[in-house]
Amino acid sequence: MLSSYLMVAAILFCIGLYGALVKKNAVIVLLSIELMLNAVNLNLVAFSKYGVVPSLTGQIFTLFTIAVAAAEVAVGIAILIALFRARGTVNVDEYDEMRR
């Protein structure tokens, strides 16, 4: 049963990776990163039930991950709004000052 959960998490992680690298809209890139974080949470909780040493510690870790992810989304959206004000676009291809 553990490997089934790990497989779903792996599929979710790969879809999130693809979306984060291909999509041009910055909001969707943030959403794809959330997808990858959720895949990791699923792994942690699956190991907390079926792992070698089953314990509640995995669930505590997941709580902390969710809190950090919420903070990350808030800051990410704030940066996105500031960038949109400065540049007038949400296309990640146009945020390229650093390589010019």
Binding site: L6, A10, C14, L17, Y50
Partner: peptide
């Protein structure tokens, strides 16, 4: 990446401990 993860998950012998 999915192929690598798939291979790794299939290969690993997970010990059949008592689930939580």
């Amino acid at each position: 990446l999915f192929g690598i993860l798939f291979y790794a998950i299939r290969q690993t012998e997970f010990p059949q401990e008592q689930p939580l």
